[in-house]
Amino acid sequence: MFEDKIEKMNENIGTIPMIEYEKRVYTPEEIQDILGVSRTTIYQLIKSKVFHSVRVGGQYRISKRSFDKWLEESDEEL
């Protein structure tokens, strides 16, 4: 009986819609990958406040919107 309930639940796994959302923050590691720079450089950028970041549970999160804006403005200056 219990196995039948589990089997029935598993039948519906493929039909459950996935919730998609737009990413709103980056981790320092993601910024490091995007820019191709060192970890030290990322934390210098965070400390210099060139884009908005917050510290959550001892870890930094960088606003995607402010990072993208900073990056676009940097491209225009080149």
Rank of each mutant, 00 (worst) to 15 (best):
M1Y: 09
M1H: 10
M1N: 08
M1L: 10
D4H: 08
D4I: 11
K5S: 12
K5V: 12
I6W: 09
K8C: 06
K8W: 06
N12Q: 08
N12C: 07
P17F: 12
M18N: 10
M18G: 03
E20H: 09
E20L: 14
Y21D: 06
Y21I: 13
Y21L: 10
E22C: 05
K23P: 04
R24S: 13
V25W: 14
T27Y: 13
T27A: 08
T27F: 09
P28D: 12
E29H: 08
E29Y: 08
I31H: 02
I31K: 02
Q32P: 00
Q32A: 02
D33H: 11
D33R: 15
D33A: 12
L35D: 07
L35W: 04
G36H: 01
G36V: 00
G36D: 01
V37M: 08
V37E: 09
V37I: 14
R39S: 11
R39V: 14
R39P: 03
R39T: 14
T40Q: 12
T41N: 11
I42R: 00
I42C: 01
Y43T: 02
L45D: 00
L45A: 02
I46A: 03
K47V: 00
K49I: 01
F51S: 03
H52P: 00
S53F: 08
R55W: 03
R55A: 09
V56N: 10
G57S: 12
G57R: 09
G57F: 07
G58P: 03
Y60M: 05
I62V: 14
S63C: 09
S63E: 13
K64Y: 04
R65H: 10
S66V: 02
S66G: 01
F67H: 04
D68H: 04
K69C: 07
L71K: 10
E72V: 04
E72L: 08
E73R: 13
D75F: 14
D75L: 11
E76H: 04
E76G: 02
E77C: 03
E77Q: 12
L78K: 12
L78Q: 13
